[in-house]
Design a protein around this nucleic acid. Structure first.
Lengths: 201, 201
DNA sequence: CGCGACGTTGATTTGCCTCAACGATTGTGG
DNA sequence: CCACAATCGTTGAGGCAAATCAACGTCGCG
């Protein structure tokens, strides 16, 4: 899929307009701050040691962020497709080197805003500040739900709920990514699916 | 400990001023919206079915929020002491009935702001909106850290890290609350402490 | 075609849970 | 201020869910 940069930016603006109101003037202010970033499949956007200086929005494709522990095991913190945001927010906010990987799963097109540009946008277009307040609120609540679920359910339930919650995304994620997101090993998820074929067909 | 309401409110304002600037006029606007809520030990602030209509700040005392699953097991989502915020944010934002308990661990004094009042404050005093954007950003990043840790460490490491991260709070929390926060059963935490007395003395 | 990445399978091990009984401590009402 | 109950923490035996390890199948891609 090939997109003109104009189209990419407009998709981004549309996304903003789903949550906030923007005048044409506001839109001009925003457009001036945007950049496009393209990634092939399996390309790294952030690696440990990098400092994240951009807020990033997925226009097309699929990405994830994960932590690699001392036993070389991956733990997926986040994944995202079109119209989701993806970043290492800890690094972005603290300006410290990341301990995470952020990587594309498919060929991906991103819109990104540099931190300095976003800070000035907050002042020029206060609705943008409101946009991020609302977005981060929702993200926080969603992460709380995930935390509760991690604490209170077994593997079968977690995978079941995952499938209904992310019906449309599941097939775009490799199975080992799903396992690492749900906190189980890939071999176990494989065995789980076999044991419950009927439920999962 | 007995506090005049004036003193309670001033502590709250001081807390705001650690993050944002407020003119005397702003402070007046804020003060008009505040209420005080007092709880004895082990009193419920929110129970399943309630809708949370307030943002709440702990002036003194200790609280936690937890989920009770279908096997009657508690899972602590959050705890907090003086100068922390506590709420069921999901219920507050969605206006839907909570599925959580929010309960005091010690005798506690709260400052609370009704949702409608907070919404108007966002318009009257934009710095307040910024305050909450910054606070929720930090909370989100902290919860991400916890998520990574839940996914990538065993019980021993989680408890170790907990002790260093919350050195001052640990002794104010019953041990079963700590266990339920870390995702293990109280009996197991007890055995863990015994097995590693030397590390934990 | 051949290699590398991904998924599967089964045998074995282990970390944590379950359950039940017993201490210790605290707070409360008489 | 004591007595008693309730709450909280401890201990140990036994069980199970999930991890580990190693081998093999399969598919897509260079």
């Amino acid at each position: 899929m090939h997109m003109k940069s104009q189209e990419v930016f407009l998709r981004f603006i549309d996304h903003l307009k789903e949550t906030i109101k923007l005048s044409d003037l506001d839109v001009d202010f925003v457009l001036k701050k945007l950049e496009i970033k393209k990634l092939k499949r399996k390309e790294y956007l952030i690696q440990p040691g990098d400092v994240s200086r951009y807020m990033r929005f997925i226009v097309s494709g699929c990405m994830r962020s994960f932590y690699l522990d001392e036993n070389s095991q991956e733990h997926t913190l986040q994944f995202g497709i079109e119209n989701w945001w993806i970043n290492d927010l800890h690094s972005y906010l603290s300006r410290q080197p990341s301990r995470m990987y952020v990587q594309s799963i498919e060929k991906t097109v991103l819109v990104q805003i540099h931190r300095d540009n976003l800070e000035s946008l907050y002042l020029e277009v206060p609705e943008i500040a409101r946009f991020f307040r609302l977005k981060i609120q929702s993200a926080y609540v969603a992460l709380q739900e995930r935390t509760i679920e991690n604490l209170s359910t077994n593997s079968y339930e977690r995978y079941s709920n995952f499938r209904t919650q992310f019906r449309d995304i599941e097939q775009r994620l490799p199975q080992y990514v799903i396992a690492s997101y749900l906190g189980m090993r890939p071999e176990f998820l494989s065995a789980l699916k076999k044991k419950h074929v009927l439920d999962f067909s």
